[in-house]
Design a protein around this nucleic acid. Sequence first.
RNA 1: GGUCGAUUAGCUCAGCGGGAGAGCGCUUCCUUCACACGGAAGAGGUCACAGGUUCGAAACCCGUAUCGCCCACCA
Length: 889
Amino acid sequence: MEQAGRGLAGLSKSYDPKPIEDKWYSKWIEDGVFKADPNSGKPAFSIVIPPPNVTGSLHLGHALDNTLQDILCRTRRMQGYEVLWMPGTDHAGIATQNVVERAIREEGGDRREMGREAFVKRVWEWKDEYGSRIIGQLKKLGASCDWDRERFTMDEGLSRAVRRVFVELYKKDLIYRGKYLINWCPRCLTALSDLEVEHRELDGRLYSVRYDFVDGDGSVTVMTTRPETILGDTAIAVHPRDERNRHLVGRRVAAPITGRVIPVIEDNMVDPEFGTGAVKITPAHDPNDFLVGLRHDLEQISVMDDQGVMNENAVKYRGMDRFEARAAITDDLRNLGLLLDEIPHRHSVGHCYRCNTIVEPYLSEQWFVRTRPLADEDVAAVNSGKIRFIPEQWTATYHQWMENIRDWCISRQLWWGHRIPAWYCCDCGKITVAADEPASCESCGSKRLYQDEDVLDTWFSSALWPFSTMGWPDETPELEKFYPTSVLVTGFDIIFFWVARMIMMGLEFMKKPPFRDVYIHALVRDEHGQKMSKSKGNVTDPLVIIEKYGADALRLTLAALTLQGRDIFLSESRIETYRFFLNKLWNAARFALMSLEDAEHDIDEIDYGELRVHDLWIMARVSSTAEEMTRLSDGYFFGESSRLMYDFVWGELCDWYLELSKPALKGEEGDARKRATQSVLYSVFRDVLKLLHPVIPFTTEELWHVFGYGDTIIGRSSWPVPRDVPGGDAATSAMECIQAVTRAMRNLRAEVKMPPQQEAPEMRVRIKDSSIFDSIAKNEGLIRILSRVNRIEFMRDDAEKPEKSISYITGSWEIFFPVGSLLDIDKEIARLRAESAKLSKEAERISRKLSNKNFIDKAPAEVVEHDRAALADAESRIRRIEENISGLR
RNA sequence: GGUCGAUUAGCUCAGCGGGAGAGCGCUUCCUUCACACGGAAGAGGUCACAGGUUCGAAACCCGUAUCGCCCACCA
């Protein structure tokens, strides 16, 4: 596999990722490059992977997330850090239970018939299959995780951490159990936290219903969007300071349908401006009403069962689905003359984030985390700068949520997950909470105990991920070395679900925040900006892209499109753009390798005495590019750094340097020049490959070995540091001149439609500015190569300008392209006139500016100077163009 | 109802105080010995609208409009 020395080594004419990627990934694993040593003396850099769900396969969001993490890890390794990238997967309780249930149903089975034990066994089988599929996909992408450390949120170690945390929080009274109104999914048959409910606007109806006073004297009208909950009404409420309605307080009405006699009460929750100012109170089916019910000690009457079907409290509607019941009750109210009005009404309705069923506020016994005390610490950590969000704007989003946080319902009525470590006593009924199954009830000593049937919210275990994966609650070398982690890379969609809760748990149990930086990236959308989803059918499988374009092309595309705070619209044409870049790089390397094949000398020795302006220029440019890359990398500027390399390689290295180096490499300038140029080329490519390696590890690894830069892999080489290039600055200025002159010459050639391969016989350059005469004239050879001109004549300012030429004119120099009788004089005059007119407009604008006293007084001196120079340049150009025009006539 | 973001070339987006940039697409020319997945040269924009600050605004501030995201106990 190792290439001995340099050579084309069968480098294909176009870039083909297929033979490269698997080969190098295996080699990296074999060499143990990704292994993290907690006993290392190097500074630590650590990241925990946001564990993908074991529900299915990776999507482009994962590809982005992991590409960015990989770029950071690979860069830091080259910069001398001991890097731990902790990999693993999440059991994803409700999501995984749902997909496995569906699979079982498709086979004609049923979870309940199977029983809990058999079902859980089946989910583990699923986890083994899909978990390893996901890991395989991450490897295809090139992720440099320390795979020996792979963890799963339900493996033994992490389960132990979960139980420990539960017990400790319970002992601190930060976990409690109680009967509350929670969000219930009637399809998944489980409680959900507030976050797991997605609110969506729906078109509903707002019904006005009449409630008659039991004393027969009048009525009160209330509005509702959910007439079926009338069956659970236990009060009518008005605002205490509502003049219109306060006389009603204390009277009693008969609820429609049920005839239940209920009081009119007063409560601040009521908005006196809405409708009639009176509201029906259903404590068992509405979160607000629930709180009102607690304040007024109202009866809580559930009218539905756990599947959203009307129960025994629903009298004649019993057995109807909740929406069926709504229609039936509306009809009945209408027939009874109690339905006074009915208007269309758009309102927001909660849906289950996993199955999209409309959730039901439902009264049940659940476990909760008391979040307020934990949240206060979190906010303090972010405010004090211990945790930094990047981009910063997410700090505000985070705060807003933390400040309004409510208790977190953590119990789920599922089978797949961490069973709640709480046991109930058959004798005294008390609860024993313990990390391991208790032998007896801690209250009465009874041995007759049974464990809580419920499992924990999946996010409870992922909240512990940064330290549970490192061996907590044991004190391990990993925790010592790598906690807190350096940065968390994730999408904004799980800031609340995951990031906030990790901060809570990290601060509570480790006394340190779990990460220093939180880099929040955008969402990957399709080319039209649509969110990718299975139902829209616009999901792109990263593996399909990798198969077609290669992992490096996908990685580079994602990185280049990652600009802070913007969603990524991904399309194949964009991937092609970066795939073309890889081909360009590949061919540039091919060219370099061809040119190095006969290099016999010590190629690492650069003979500075033999270097020309373009050699010094490219070396200086590599150095400043390396410096810039370090800065961009430190600041998480993924898009900017990828584009910087793209522009440097294509726009400078390939477009200019490789072209300029050709004569020397062909030996046209002598052996010493050839050797020096070979050395420069060799040195430049080494740094370019290193700088690109974090983004395109496979391609750079392959080329690294073909170039023969060392026996070890590129990931073990060191990150380029800026180098002082003697004469580099002067060379850079000279090159700017050369580039400008060259562009002008090409322009003139195109003007007369001279084919690019046809060598122009002669160009004349009249240089007005004597300070640049040398840097241009001295480099005649370079300009000739780039412009494909046989002969260039340089003239001082006082020289006669040539006849019958078309011209390109700047303030400092003029280029004449003699075309003799071929010249269409009228056309050339028209062109120059247009040019002159454009310049006049420009000159007029600047001169207006310069005649503004305020501008001269207040603008910085260099700006004024810049404009003066610009005006002088424009005026000089106009003058020369006019001279030219009169000369042509 | 509240927050945040967006509005710049046909498309996707950079630029965030000193007279507008990239990629793709488009036009013209070119298979030259690294690359046609390429090269060279072009065309194309009152920087959403209306005010303000400033010597100077695409950029900063205040509105307006449109789009998008998130949050919310909208009966």
